[in-house]
Structure formats: C-alpha cells, structure tokens
Design a protein around this nucleic acid. Structure first.
Lengths: 349, 349
DNA sequence: TTGAAAGCGATACCAG
DNA sequence: CTGGTATCGCTTTCAA
C-alpha cells in the first residue's frame, strides 16, 4: 500500500496541513522545510496527494465530461464528431482540464446513471437526439454547467451551433439554381424503426431528431420557394450515419425514382456513400453533403461547411471560461456553401 | 446548494447507511422503505451519491486514463490514433468505464503533475517517445496498473503491440523483391531539432524514438539482405506526422537523389503526403506506408496493416480485465503487408 | 510559520 | 432489515 499524506507528516514530524501546503501552497512554508518534506515523501514512495480526495475536499475535479448520444466508440468513426472533439481537446488543453468521455448505455435509466456518476465539473453534450432532453435534465439535477450543440437552444442555456435550417437551405438553393426540381433528401434514421431506403413522411415536423428535422426543413424551404411541395420530395432514410449506410440507402429500386436529378444528404459521410453507390451503378446525379469533412474535398463533394473544430473549441470555452454577459452564452457559428464538382446543372428533361 | 445524502437521511428519518443502501444495495432494505427514500430524495432535489465521495470511499473511480505523448488535440488528427481510441472506447463501453483523456504539458514536470492528478484506475499509454519512460515511472509511483503500446515492452509490464521491425521489413522486402535498391526512408522527427528533408544518420541506433528506430531498422534489414548498406539509404525527416509534412519532406532538391526509385514511409499519412508531392511534381516512384488507415485503400497505397482498433481494444481489456497468466500480459498483434498500386517494379536503369 | 480541528460526502462492517 | 461508527485522504480556516 502506498503511504498517505498522514504517514509523511508523521515521518517528518510535522502536521498534515504542513505537508499539504508543501504540495499545494509552497509559499506557506520555508523552502528548507518544504524540501525536507518532499524528499522524505519521495523516499517513502508517497505519490503525491490523492486526486480523488483532493477533488472531494476542493469541490472541483479538473475534468469536463463529453457526452455522445450514440455509442461512444461510434463517435470516433464519425469524422465530424472527431473534429468537434479536437476542438474540445484544444480548449481543455489550454485550460489544463482533462476530458472524460462517458459511454452512455442505450437504456434511459443506464444513461441517467452514467451521467450521475461522472466525476466532472461540467458537460459538453454533443449532437442530441430526442434523448437529449432527459440527459440535460439529469445534468441540471446535479447542478452542473453544460453546453449543448444541438439545434434547439433553450433560452438561458449555453449553446454553440449553427443555423441548421438556413445552412441546409443554402445547399438546396444551389441545386434549385441549377434547375433541379426532382430530388431526394437523405438522412440518418429519419423515422424510428424504418428500413433503409425510401420512407413516407407526411410532414417535416414528423421527423423526431431535431437536427435532422431542421436540415430537411431547410432543404424543403428552398424547393417550396420554386414551387416544389414537400410531398413531391423523395425522403430516404439510412440505417446509421456511415458511408456504407449512405450507399445502401439509395440502392432500393424505388429510392431514386426516374426523374430524380439530385440527392441532398444531411451529412458528408452519407453523401460520399451516395457517390460510391452512383459510381457503382454508373449513374450520375448531383449530390450535396453537409459538414465539409476532410474527405469531401478530394471527392469533389459540394457541401455545407460548418466549423467543427471551432464548434468544439467554443463549446469547451463556454464551459471552462464562461462569459459574464448573458447574451454571450449562445454562440451562432457561420456556415458556408462549398461548391465542388459533385453538383451540376439539371439535365433538361 | 444541492442536498447531501445526510440531509435525505434526516428528512426520511433513517440513518445515512440506509439511504446509501437505497442507492447502492437495493436488496438490503424493504422495497417500500427504499421507494420512500428515493421519492423524498427526488423531491428534495438530491442528485444521487456524489461520484467523487463515492470514489474516495470505494477506492476506485470507474475511469481509465489515456495518455498521448504528443498534444492531445493532435491525437485526433492522426487517423491511427483515432483507430486506437475507438478500440479503447469499445472495451471501456463494454466494461462500463469512462475514458479520461489527459492533456500532457510539454514540460516534464507538468506532464508528471498531470499524470499524478488524474483520477483514474489505470492508464493506457499510447505511442511513447523517449518521454515515455518518465511517464511510466510516475504511473508506477502511483501504484496504478498500465498498458503500453510502444515497441519496447519491459518484462512484467502489460503491453500490446506489433513486431515493428519485422513489419517494416516486410514492406521493404516487397520493394527489394521488385528490384528496388536506391530508396529513401521517411519518418517523423528522425532526429531532434532537424529541418524537414534529408538528414544524416550515422547509424539506425542513433534514432531516439523507439518505434521509429525499430521501423527504420526493419527497412534497413531488408536492404542489407540484398547488399544495400545503411549508408546507402537516404533518410528523410518530416516535421510532424501529417500529410502536409510528408509532402514537404520530399520537396528539397536533395531529398530524392536521382537514382531513387522508392520511398518507404513510417506511417500512412506521411506516405500519402509523399504521393501528393510526387503527383504534384509529375514524378512516379514506388511508395509504401505503415498502418493501413482508411485513406490508404482509395489512394492505392501499399502499406503494412496493423490492427489499430484491436490494439486499443486489447489494451483496454488488459487493463480492465487483466488475465491471470503472466504470459498473457503481453499481446503481440499480427501485421499484414497490403499490396496496392503505389508500388511496382523498379525501372531498369 | 506551523498545527489542531473540522469537515468534504459517502460506504462498509458489524451488531442488533 | 436497520443504524452506529469508523474511516477514505486531503484541505482549510483559524489560532498560536
């Protein structure tokens, strides 16, 4: 067993406070005594103050939690999530905080417990689906600060994000400007428990996932503006947010009904999958993505750039170094449409 | 202020132990009493047992630390590191552990402090350079278990890795088999404080970073076997492990002296950078990488596959669920040479 | 400067 | 099934 601070104090013949000061407040004791304490501590194999005990006493931990609503290990396979994490890490690094990545069990009770048990000073909640509400309630129940990045900032809550709807609209307007009128919209799990491929969605408002809903609504806005109603748009659902799922979603025969000239995907990985599938089928449609991940440029994918690293950086900053002004608690980041080669004029019919 | 367990106990009129049991050992009290406790706790806004206090008392945290020797935020930009992390996350998830990513300050004292202050049950140490030794000493000083993945397993220590030297050799043998004799070897920071580009290395043993040294030695082995001495090999150093740095390293005029027919890189990102540069220069050499990251296949890069996700998974397993047998504490993972289009026969001179 | 005392918030053993 | 008691290891006034 490793010795404790108490043991060191006894060995040196001073009080525990003095040993504590030797570590945490060097100015509170003579250099000489401090050195003597540190030396014997080293000699005894004392590893320094126990971090857990210190946290308990001090009331803060020095770590922020990061919550991914999908499985944690999936997060690393999503390039955009990795960008976000990079930004969070940058801020944490600067601030000297650690990052606690907390795996959330799929069941609500388990997820709640995981959030309750995390030893952190606050949370970054990444990309919330409908389960986000409960998670946030749990965090709030603990009285901890948090930052969300989903599409629905509640007043008073810290948030960093983009105007999802307007961003999506910009991609769609690019296509309507090119003359596209018959298009398919593609998103991850548009409706719960549906197979990959075409799904019937009576109304955009029926889409449960907030971010997906906003993006689809943005696409729809642009088409509505040129007289194409929601009911005339094909909606495709992917099994998950991966390249393979994107490819699979456009494979069913009814996925891209004949006059279709373009596919608007809610993420770059899905869009890249669509390009894969189209290439495989020898078909050429216009395709747009969302995020502008690193793979987008080499693939020539037209997409909406959202600053992922900055999103993470600002989110962590908001948590670690909160601004005083209440109106600085919500940060709206800009997006940019990046036009590449995956989109072109609609063929004249 | 949030109420504590004590307050709940007083409110319900039972002892603290009973409230504690209501949370942690439901079988130790009547369902009825438990419900009553939980209900009033909820009513009072008690967030459940404080994780830090619980950890202190229980003596374990439920989190494992992950240490990257380069800057934490860089780790996410390295595809292989992300693979590793994915694997670690998978195991952690399965085991219900969280992952604490600890940023290590560049200075040794700061790094030591960071390791001492991390509230974790053990560490995964990823890819150690020469600073690894000190970090491991610090961990050992704390008496915590750890797993390393670098090229030099010490006896008794838990380790998961590959035979770096043999793996590198397999790539080089592929090239010697194709007739290549004049080649350049490329690695990240071969020598400390040298500019990008060609460096003079009297002997492989002079390379400080253990993994780099092993891989270069493996390359050299294969060439030695066909009569090409170390001194006849061009050694190139990149500024860091990135695609851009890989490209930059082969740009200086003396980087690829005329008879050179191939470049062997110590990582895929460097190799991809070389391909970029060669394409830009309109030059065509054989190029090999190391790791087999996702971008390697589409780029047609011949490379040595090492199972990154599995490396992470096994490392975390070794930590979370240590095998009893002492000889199962060190796991050697297989590597495979994946031949693609970036390598071909050496042009007859 | 140094030290005594009082917790931080919870858990576990062991009687009852 | 319930509660008393003794920690877990450290930090922080406040006096001396």
């Amino acid at each position: 067993m490793k010795p404790t601070l108490r043991a060191v104090a006894e060995a040196v013949g001073v009080s525990r406070s003095t040993v504590s000061n030797a570590y945490g407040r060097p100015d509170q004791l003579s250099t000489e005594l401090r050195q003597r304490i540190l030396d014997t501590a080293r000699k005894m194999g004392y590893p320094g103050p126990n971090p857990t005990a210190r946290s308990l006493r001090r009331g803060f931990v020095g770590a922020i939690g990061v919550l991914f609503t999908s499985r944690l290990s999936y997060a690393f396979t999503d390039p955009f999530a990795v960008q976000f994490l990079t930004g969070v890490a940058e801020s944490a690094e600067l601030h000297g905080s650690s990052l606690l990545l907390v795996p959330l069990p799929a069941d609500a009770a388990g997820a709640r417990k995981a959030v309750e048990n995390a030893a952190v000073d606050g949370f970054c909640v990444y990309c919330g689906g409908d389960e986000e509400g409960e998670i946030i309630d749990t965090i709030r129940g603990r009285g901890l600060p948090f930052v969300t990045t989903s599409s629905r900032p509640r007043a008073q809550d810290r948030w960093v994000g983009i105007d999802e709807r307007a961003a999506a609209r910009s991609a769609a307007e690019h296509l309507t400007g090119l003359g596209h009128r018959r298009v398919a919209l593609l998103a991850d799990s548009v409706l719960p428990d549906t197979a990959a491929g075409r799904v019937r969605v009576p109304d955009v408002a029926d889409v449960p996932h907030p971010t997906t809903r906003e993006r689809l609504a943005g696409f729809a806005d642009a088409f509505a503006a040129v007289g194409v109603a929601w009911s005339e748009l094909t909606v495709l659902s992917a099994a998950d947010n991966s390249r393979a799922a994107g490819a699979a979603a456009v494979l069913p025969p009814d996925a891209l009904p004949e006059p279709t000239t373009a596919v608007l995907a809610c993420s770059d990985v899905l869009a890249l999958g669509v390009l894969d599938a189209l290439r495989g089928a020898g078909r050429r449609l216009s395709v747009t993505g969302f995020d502008d991940i690193a793979e987008a440029a080499p693939a020539g994918l037209t997409t909406v750039l959202q600053p992922g690293v900055e999103k993470g950086r600002r989110a962590a900053e908001l948590l670690l170094d909160p601004p005083v002004a209440p109106d600085a608690q919500q940060i709206l980041l800009p997006t940019t449409l990046v036009v590449r080669t995956s989109t072109g004029p609609a063929p004249r019919s």
